[in-house]
Computed example of a mutant assay.
Amino acid sequence: MIRFENVTKVLGNRAVLDGIDFEVGPGETFVIVGLSGAGKSVTLKHMIRLMQPDAGRIVIDGEDINQLGRNGLRQARAKFGVLFQGAALLQWMSVRDNVALPLREHTKLPDDEILRRVDQKLELLSLDDAGDKFPSDISGGMQKRAGLARAIIMDPQIVLYDEPTSGLDPVTSRRIDDLIVNMRERLGITSVVVTHDLHSALAIGSRIMMLHEGRIVENAPPEGFIRSKDPTVQSFLESQYITKKGKWEGMGHE
């Protein structure tokens, strides 16, 4: 579904992406981790051509996205929904109007049908009572859920999440994790998640890829990731108090 082939991107004389290769298959929850500046968000931006590589190809459903014209690019981007790091809700609009915005901008659906679809997504994300509220009136976790409702309102095949649990308390973070899993199980959505939160990555990921200094140092299922022999991976795990023992001990021994 998504394939990066020897992708390189140089910013400020530094290779933020240095010849990376990976694939994301249909229905996966593919998690990208790494230190700040490792190229995680840059990778997401390349998937929807907000940035273009200096070398290599990015293939979406068999098409090189960087070779598409305006109409082709619009069709390719329609396959994606995006949950931005800060939810990016418009503060002067109600939650319902925020979620409805993509339908109003990109379709000719009558308003009653738009509102029906919006209320359906709000119910799915347990926001039934929040539709008439403004973003400033709801919690950070509810704002993230409203942003997710807007990201899936056009029924995309793929959802990109940029630090979905950033700034949230642990309980709310785990609720967002559950929602991401729910999107995959109920709607069959392919997810690509950028996060610093390894507990989240291990809970939701079908595979976890770590970027370091522009290169991929690991790309494995969670049980393989925590057993990586790469010192950078092990240091990253230990920094969040994750070891092969304890909670994660049973991984890979089913």
Rank of each mutant, 00 (worst) to 15 (best):
N13I: 14
R116M: 14
I65S: 09
E254R: 12
P110Y: 07
G140E: 09
E223C: 10
A100S: 10
G86M: 12
I226A: 04
E238M: 11
P26E: 10
W248S: 04
D129Q: 15
A149R: 08
I114R: 10
I2P: 06
A78L: 05
Q143W: 10
R215N: 11
D119H: 15
V171W: 13
K45P: 11
M47P: 03
D230V: 13
V82Q: 01
V159L: 10
S239F: 08
A76H: 03
P231W: 05
G224V: 07
R227Y: 12
L35Q: 07
P231M: 04
K108I: 09
V171I: 06
G188K: 04
H46M: 15
Q157N: 15
G69L: 13
P156N: 12
D169F: 05
I176N: 03
Q143E: 14
D132F: 09
R57A: 12
E63H: 10
I189D: 03
E238R: 15
Q143S: 11
L179H: 00
L17V: 02
V16F: 06
T195Y: 00
R49Q: 07
L168R: 06
A151N: 03
F30L: 13
V31H: 01
V171D: 00
S191H: 02
E218A: 13
K247I: 12
L83M: 08
G188F: 02
K108Y: 10
K245F: 14
G62S: 06
S239H: 05
R74Q: 15
M154P: 12
